[in-house]
Design a protein around this nucleic acid. Structure first.
Lengths: 236, 236
DNA sequence: TCCATTTTTCATCAGGTGATGAAAAATGCG
DNA sequence: CGCATTTTTCATCACCTGATGAAAAATGGA
């Protein structure tokens, strides 16, 4: 018989049940969120079961419902946790750009201020962020309920981007700016989600994880795209 | 009692079981594929049950397994059905461009020859194609098994695009071309999947379904992006 | 120490999942 | 018609799903 058991009931775990300190309760919540984040990012909302999340977190299934309620609420908690941080980082980045280059703004500068915080966070923010971006990319491509979710969390900062660009290029039509943003966000999300597709496609020449390579190209790529579309509309 | 019943067994349907003509068998297979395509596009592979597909197609659940086997095989059949058509259309488009403008190719021309067939098919090919593109966009963002699926079906034509662009701009590095393709495909897939996000974001100014608006902007946007990245690499 | 509070575990529910085998019905060929 | 073949239906299996309520265990303040 196992000596570590604290109870005589068969099947009782030595790890112990009971009330941990408040700090450990928070850690456990975070552990569950981390596990859920990774699994949801890989397999999507419907591709993951609460039991898988519990197993990955090393926790009883019922504990997930105790802390988060229904499965969908758990997903929202995962999504929400980092969305706030993301928005703050972006707003701060655009604040800084306006402060430092408000007198001589360029399209590329504004776009860099909009995208770079995400690249930086993905590189330096810790491992959970890679999963999170893959998750957001997936939500972004979920027709059924992805659009409203994205809009609810990210519309404000996007509107700020468009308005700032309108300031830099007053002759540009909003139509063109919105379409160009659509193109930009498709490129950006695919780059951030690091699907590994470019690795096999380029036969080892490029790597999804090489966000420095993205940084060296994406800003000028998008900026040139914006300028071309605006110029073409002005000519027509 | 219902007079239409052809059998005395309780619960037997008047619609009739039995062996239809071979033509009807094919039609039924297509009906199932159509239903599966729409549902998978909306909710993803795990978000759809075989029973839902059967109900949508107006067919018994067991019939799906009779025709397609396991659920994943049904998904592959959905994916495969139009992938072939897509690749042929793209190859033909690039053949035509090479034939007509082989002497004076431009980056924008090559890109247009690569993207335009998809836009055209989505507009004129029938309603199933919209679902299909949403499906492909979703697979493209599925880390677990999306990459290999995309590679298996679409790598050849992408390599042809890259090689053709290398011919047009011999000074360009492959690295840059692959990264730019990554950006291009992110924009293109998001536009083709018509998520409706731009509709609410632009407050009615733009519409996802307006592929003519995409056509008017995406080619020059991407071409300018490629040129900018190539030029920047050449300068560095 | 003792007890109210909080956390964790256990057992279980009602319903849904993909899948299968056998029976039934429709078909076309001879 | 009679019959082999194919398609469609039915009934069901073994298992998994999200979720819940009650019991058990750990905790901290009195």
């Amino acid at each position: 018989m196992t000596a570590a058991k604290t109870s005589s009931r068969p099947g009782a775990r030595p790890g112990g049940r009971g009330r941990p300190s408040k700090a450990k309760g928070l850690d456990l919540k975070e552990t569950i969120l981390d596990a859920a984040e990774g699994l949801f990012a890989r397999h999507g909302f419907y591709g993951v079961t609460t039991r898988q999340v519990a197993a990955e977190a090393g926790v009883d299934t019922a504990l997930i419902h105790y802390y988060f309620g229904a499965k969908r609420e758990l997903f929202d908690a995962v999504f929400l946790r980092r969305a706030e941080i993301l928005n703050q980082a972006r707003e701060a980045s655009m604040d800084a750009y306006l402060r430092d280059h408000g007198g001589a703004m360029t399209v590329e500068g504004v776009i860099e201020a909009f995208i770079d915080p995400l690249l930086r966070i993905s590189q330096d923010g810790g491992p959970g962020w890679k999963s999170y971006f893959a998750l957001v990319a997936q939500v972004n491509n979920t027709p059924a309920w992805g659009g409203e979710t994205m809009a609810r969390f990210f519309d404000p900062v996007v509107h700020r981007l468009v308005e700032t660009l309108k300031t830099v290029r007053p002759e540009a039509e909003y139509r063109d700016l919105y379409w160009c943003y659509q193109f930009l966000t498709g490129s950006m999300m695919l780059a951030l989600s690091e699907t590994g597709r470019i690795d096999s496609l380029s036969e080892g020449e490029c790597h999804s994880s090489d966000l420095e390579a993205v940084r060296a190209r994406l800003f000028s790529y998008c900026a040139a795209g914006f300028e071309a579309v605006i110029a073409k509309a002005g000519r027509a």
